[in-house]
Design a protein around this nucleic acid. Structure first.
Lengths: 339, 339
DNA sequence: TTGAAAGCGCTAACAT
DNA sequence: ATGTTAGCGCTTTCAA
């Protein structure tokens, strides 16, 4: 089944030494006579030879392979980032493969081991653990996708979550929504909710709205969280007078809320304004379609690739940090209120 | 940056030969004295040594790495298959990475090259080209995910599309829908529409409904296709009397149709029944939620892994073909008609 | 321009 | 139980 043709058989058939063959198949190949070149090319073709880049890399300490490690490959957010990074990286001659950790540390460790044992020239990662030491320990160029404040010694790219949140809140406000609630998580899986919450607090203060912590719902950023939000909302005394809009920490939450509200006879975009965050594909297909803030996945992926390439080129360059603004996607879930 | 500790420095520090070190770091390691074992372990720890599995593989002709190559990583259908395969494969000690071709041949070729140059022990793939020769040429175990009739010499796993289609049609029929149309593509990107169409024709015949080709809409399996379907439908003379349900080739199409219908004042699940195929995430979030046939992605991924493992174990085993039935997801887009 | 030889880091057959 | 010696397939001095 396996063909196993090696440089040496090519050499034999071409009637040259393996060094010569090596020279012709290498980019930087030393000088080879035209004649030898041709003979080798012919032999390669006849034998259907393919260079074992692994063995080549063993010597050259190179793999021409880059790993993009994401926590959830089934989430379009991550897969699109991966794809964008891939474009850029491949253009530079690397092959890219993606690793999926499913948020579990042991899987992340597995990929880290692969890296340590020299399988990749670099990685673009979103780490489950954010164990900076483990990351540096791999000894290869790494770019992080996310928004950790801590990792100042590692190249980072991400969305400016606070700005994105503010963007959503401003939209709500501009449409006349004044009694704005927030639903987000403040612990667990999602690391940056505190940023969302902070942006919310800042915004309300800037608008001169007195703080009202009963308008800050703490729920999981999941479908269940969306249903829970609606339950809590309905249970709130006189909520109709106190809330006319809610900023949801992400789209999953927001979409589940839209549906739960409908079940309760409340229609989003009419009785209550809702905005989400992320712009997942389903956001465009709900009814009403969800107004949300899109994270610039393509930009993020491309920038990550860019930084990685730069670091591979020069391991000593100072770490860089690139945050991109979100993009408001205006759809149908925000009410226009005339005040 | 890179630590570059090799077996030889470990040996030196431990005061043993490198073979001994090799023995302790290998699974199948030969016999090593307790004392040597300890000394080596200590040295490894002190040096922070990590085994270069690449070099190890060079000798063992093994990489312990498997590639899952999919055409669109951002499509949950593929990413979930990949993830399911990953579970099974990792349990067997392999690392899995996923390759994304984005339906472009040159990317597929790139992965094929990697495979040829010995980077993976096997692959689970959905090929863009289905170039059987190129696939065999890689000389490593491959399992195809899809439903090609041709590739009988390669292990294959997929969904039984005809059975799945029939399942949807039977559901429509059972709910009293008698005038059933079909919207699917009959050329281009999607290869198996003919199976859907064939299943449709068979079913109608079995039910004793005379064939009516004007009820077979040929559109792309895309959002645009969904809008086009609705345009064609509305343009059809007296369509309300001739059609009470439409089977859509996939969910994207069906969801776009639901929305286009609503724009025309027609509500799916009431005025017209609609079923989709695939069960993409958005299908559960539309209004009405889409009744559709779910492809058993987890089963497919796991089965693919299983077959691959089996073939790696025994390259000579006869090729196997596993097709799984779909699962009907009853939601709100099919009308109950009393007849 | 070309070949011989020495590795890259590791494993495995063969001695001891 | 352990060391010695050959490689795995390729690149890269070093001579010629």
């Amino acid at each position: 089944m396996k063909s196993k043709t090696s440089i040496i058989e090519v050499a034999r058939l071409a009637g040259v030494s393996k060094s010569t063959v090596s020279r012709v198949i290498t980019e930087s190949g030393g000088s080879v006579s035209r004649r030898a070149q041709e003979k080798v090319a012919a032999a390669i073709k006849e034998l259907g030879y393919t260079r074992n880049t692994l063995a080549a890399g063993l010597r050259a300490q190179k793999t021409w392979m880059v790993l993009v490690m994401v926590p959830d490959i089934a989430n379009p957010y991550w897969s699109e980032i991966a794809r964008a990074a891939q474009d850029r990286l491949e253009a530079e001659g690397n092959s890219v493969v993606v690793g999926n950790t499913d948020w579990v540390k042991s899987r992340e460790d597995r990929y880290f081991e692969l890296a340590k044992s020299g399988r990749f020239d670099g990685m673009v990662i979103n780490s489950v653990t954010d164990d900076i030491e483990a990351i540096n320990d791999m000894g290869i160029p790494v770019v992080m996708v996310g928004e950790r404040a801590e990792s100042q010694d590692i190249d980072t790219v991400g969305t400016d979550t606070m700005a994105a949140t503010r963007m959503a809140l401003e939209h709500l406000w501009a449409r006349g929504n004044r009694r704005i609630a927030i639903a987000t998580s403040d612990h667990g899986g999602e690391r940056f909710l505190s940023l969302r919450r902070r942006a919310y607090d800042d915004f309300m203060k800037d608008m001169g709205v007195p703080a009202d912590s009963s308008l800050a719902f703490s729920v999981k950023l999941s479908e269940e969280g969306g249903r829970e939000l609606v339950r809590s909302l309905l249970a709130l005394d006189g909520w109709r007078d106190r809330i006319d809009a809610v900023f949801c920490g992400n789209d999953i939450l927001a979409i589940a809320a839209i549906n739960a509200l409908r079940d309760a006879g409340i229609v989003a975009g009419k009785d209550l304004s809702l905005v989400g965050m992320d712009d997942i594909p389903a956001a465009a297909h709900t009814f009403p379609a969800l107004t949300t803030v899109r994270k610039p996945r393509a930009l993020i992926g491309a920038a990550a690739a860019e930084l990685l390439l730069a670091r591979i080129r020069d391991p000593e360059r100072p770490p860089e940090r690139r945050l991109f603004p979100g993009e408001l996607m205006v759809r149908g879930s925000v009410t226009e209120r005339h005040i």
